[in-house]
Computed example of a mutant assay.
Amino acid sequence: MNKLPKIAIPGIITLIVLVVLIIKSAVTIDSGQAGVLYKTFSGGVVIDEPPMGEGFHIVAPWNKVFIYEVRQQEVFEKMQVLSSNGLEIKLDASAWFEPKREFLGKLHQEKGSEYIQRVLLPTIRSAARSVVGRYTPEQLYSSKRDAIQAEIYEETKKIVDGQYIQLNEILVRDVTLPATIKEAIERKLKQEQESLEYQFRLVTAKKEAEKVTIEAQGKADANRILSASLTDKILQDKGIDATLELAKSSNTKVVIVGSGDSGLPLILGNN
């Protein structure tokens, strides 16, 4: 095998060095990510330019690129907090968030890649303790979960907005009370429900009784008015009218005028 010419050796070495430099200089940023450039010899973290976008990039081999997820993310947190009367409550919550893309350099420079543990989670825990401490266990168990969720969101957002983090939502997934307190609340709620049902039955029965009374009163008033209107003269006139109608009948009969009580005719027939 022929030896390589001496002139070829430096060329091969140069080529190898170039390949290594290109590999070291190549940076690929995936979808939903952005890069923060760190210039080793000229100023450190670049904060006065937009972060590097998706795709393939070539940077000087002595510089570095720190890649961040810039899509919405979710972080979960389990906490133990105290209610307004000092009882320990277990709270499961999660946060939807994303770093503010335009301030990604600032976020990296001031908070670093562990900004979730350093900023977001401690703020959520602090806000949750503050908010839950305003409510009783009964309120936490029943009607106030949405209000608690909204208040934790507002208090957390107020702080992390200035820390280059965009908070999209806080979700309170579960509120766990001590077993004895939970049972006591459930008994109380059951008793209240039974009381409401009993009151409803009383109101319904009262309304039904009032309806029957009104109907009976109406009938009594009608009978009283009718009795007051039926004088002897009216009854006599109606008797005469009825007699005349009977007299028109084809059946055999004898009409004796003025022989009945109160002067009404008597009708004698063959039936």
Rank of each mutant, 00 (worst) to 15 (best):
Q199V: 11
Q191I: 12
R201D: 14
E197P: 00
I185Q: 02
E197W: 03
T213C: 03
K211P: 00
K206T: 13
A209L: 13
V212S: 00
T180V: 15
K207I: 13
E194K: 11
K211Q: 07
S195V: 11
Q199K: 10
T204K: 12
A205C: 10
L196N: 04
V212I: 07
V203C: 03
E192L: 09
Q193N: 14
K182R: 09
E194Y: 07
F200A: 14
A179D: 13
A205K: 08
A184R: 03
L189M: 10
L196W: 06
L189S: 12
Y198V: 07
Q191D: 04
T204R: 10
L202A: 09
T204Y: 09
R187E: 13
P178M: 05
P178R: 06
R187I: 15
E194D: 13
K190A: 15
E183Q: 12
Q191E: 08
V203I: 07
A179L: 13
P178D: 04
V203D: 06
E197C: 05
E192N: 09
T213R: 09
R201W: 13
K190N: 15
S195D: 09
K188Q: 08
K190T: 15
Q199H: 08
E210F: 00
V212T: 04
K206L: 12
E186N: 05
K211H: 04
E183N: 11
